[in-house]
Nucleic acid binder design. Sequence first.
RNA 1: GGGCGCGUAGCUCAGCGGUAGAGCACUGCCUUCACACGGCAGGGGUCGCAAGUUCGAACCUUGCCGCGCCCACCA
Length: 904
Amino acid sequence: MSEQQIPKTFDPADIEARWYPHWEKTGAFRPERPDAGPWTLVNPPPNVTGSLHIGHALDNTLQDVLARYERLRGKDAKWVVGVDHAGIATQMVVERQLAEKQQKRTDFTREEFVKKVWAWKEESGGQITRQLRRLGCSMDWSNEQFTMDPHFVRAVTKVFVDLYNDGLIYRDKRLVNWDPGLKTAISDLEVETVEVKGHFWRFRYPLADGVTLADGRDYIEVATTRPETMLADMAVAVHPDDERYASVVGNFVEQPITGRRLKIVADEHADPELGSGAVKITPGHDFNDFEVGKRAGIAAGDMLNMFNADAHVVQTQDGLVPDQFVGLERFAARAAVVAELKRLGCLIPHVARTKDGEEQELDAEPRRIQTPFGDRSNVVIEPWLTDQWYVDAEKLAVEPMRAVREGDINIVPKSWEKTFFNWMENIQPWCVSRQLWWGHRIPAWFDDDGNVFVAMSEQEAVDQAGGGTLRRDEDVLDTWFSSALWPFATQGWPEADVKGEGRYPNDVLVSGFDILFFWDARMMMMGMHLLSDVPFRDLYLHGLVRAADGQKMSKSKGNTVDPLGLIDDYGADALRFFMTAMESQGRDIKMDQGRIEGYRNFATKLWNAARFAQGYGIGASDTLAPPAATTAVNQWIIGETIRTAQAVELVLADYRFDAYASTIYQFTWNRFCDWYLELIKPVLQAEGGHDDAAETKAVAGWVLDQILVMLHPVMPFITEELWHKLGERPYDLILAKWVEADSRSISADAAEEVDWLIELVTAIRSSRSELNVPAGAKLPLFVRDAEGGTVERLERQGSALERLARIESVSSDPAPAGGAAQIVVGEATYVIPLEGVIDIAAEKARLTKNRDAAAKEAKALAGRLSNENFIAKASEAAVAEARTKLADRTAEQERLDAALDRLG
RNA sequence: GGGCGCGUAGCUCAGCGGUAGAGCACUGCCUUCACACGGCAGGGGUCGCAAGUUCGAACCUUGCCGCGCCCACCA
């Protein structure tokens, strides 16, 4: 693609469709650059069945900004990409498809079903990767990963075996969060607590054996929000110090429905302040009660279970559940238990007042109950006693906490550290087994006696067992177990020496804060244990993309925005710029189409600026260093370019994405387009050529190139297109060199001169506009009180001034008598005769407004400077600055007073 | 119950110790030969409230009021 005329219209779709395949085909994402140092980033693997949502667009834009920036700075930027098998999510999708055909998973063998999932993976797995390409993400597709690739399976198996052998994975019988919808255990993190409307019932449990309480009552009152669990009650607990019950501890109550004798135990868990102070204990179906039960000497194996896998009532081991309850669904069982207790006269009614103040008896007190739901199934979670595999997270959490504390891992923004520590310090054993078919099958085998053998292969397990036939564990691993290995398993670990290659630790991880525990922390635990080093040096956490009204986006609310649609409407570059500009640390992003449109306009602006430049023979620069410049305007823009590059480097080092976007935006539009291009028009358009033309074209071409370079990380498509349209290039922009930001190329004098010119032009324009001078009218300008330096500047910048402020001539002669606009800039006053045109009253009003503004500021400054505390305590620089400003403002005010006098 | 964050122009957001900025929207002028997805000029804010620290506070501290998120066993 060689130099050619830039078309009048900017068509993002056309450009995007051409450049992405070109980059990918030419290997630009991982070019051969033997001298380049490694820089590594791994992409949070999206679900294989997923499609790109707006959160992915944010996450991947930020990563691509970093990857492209580092690539431009000469690094061998490797951005690892791949997809996650997403156990539960994917299995659910395929099961849903079966359901549409009136089929279910269990109609098939495990092998048949898994085959169907693989088929679906092949069919749908490419979608999200195609979409990432449309966003422009410069990932290393040559090394695309899948968490169920054969080498990944080996890595996962090895990790499981190693952790088992290290005692960090174990099998345990305890309560798990059981999802009766999916019929699998899930981890704590996959449980979402939601407040729902519920009831709080109170019941009487009669004391057995004729015992009574100190006050003579023959029953103990217990309360619950889950009456159905009474069918498996095993005790009643009271606080050891609770006098009311001290006499009956060690005695029994009789559960009214089952007739089971429940021991009254003393346990700190019972809160004397709450309700009656006595609490029923169901060790098999409540996390607290499980602990109380254990303390009371009930072994896990003896705890009564009253549910099957889909939460229907089953007979307990002691056979005491009346037949009428067996087989009931859990919520039906709840109603049945309440009804039966009521019938038995054991229900204590709740007395409520109606709005009219009348008393009313209810079965139970209405309450808001914190209820656990499965995050995937949206079904109420049941604590259920099962054998599962656990990772000893507490031990694995030690090193990551140390790493964060000591700065080996730098969490950005820092405010997340507290959340991180809070979770890590209270971490619970991680249940990693899932009763699913899709996933990494657990490498554990059992013999007929229930002995377990954990091994890399069945053969090894058999060898361990000393022969015989073994049965492999049916369960698979939590998806996050495999993705926890992502920073190294994707790069060939354990065979490859990822540390030696400089690819581990990764340089940075970018993720949404919503997966800090699920994924980021687990990578730290696994990485630090298995590779003895942190998985990444920096952890950048970004927020959520919210709907325009601030609500969380979700399919069920129907308020999602499709990033692909936004790309169609505004171009990928505009969407990327939006994400980058809005990414402010520690804050969510609210959708704002107006902004995306604004950034589309920005792209168009750049396009037209390049087109303009090209029209005057400005093209690809042939130097990396700034070209030699003699004019103030050229020196100034070079300095501004370098300052911009330095600012960009500074803010990107701190992951200040918004600051990066606004820095480059303002430079491009407000400096380069609004001023520089306008200032050089007289040079470019001079009839018969201009002495400064060659220099100016060289500088303009260089600056434009630097803009393309600096903008490329966030707007890769338009910049690559313009890069080539502006001239023959030895390489694509994606592989160009970052700006040589050498401060020695900044001229302070040039900056002062151009700042002065801008101030003067702006002031003249402002007065023209306020005095309603016709926009096209060219006016003479008379200067008074100008010092030598200003006179020279006026000579040098005369043609620019004439063009930008619509001035016909500049003269240091006294202005003719009569009405005139007067403009004060610096020490000089600029007079524009407007006899007959000017409205003297309007000009007086305008000058007075300016005078008053100067006077007000001068007064404030004078006040500050007359405060001896300020002089004594404020920094010298602050005092000096105040003095300078006061002098300036006072002088300005005096000149404006003089101008007002002249108006009469 | 703990923790985190947010309340700045009509809207979306920067600024985080020296008397307020951007984009969009708004008003006026401009069909000026790069761009009307544009140019120029302009209006608009007692920076949630209160007290404190400081020579000086949108910016630091404390309290309060609103909003949001996360974690947690009130049966």
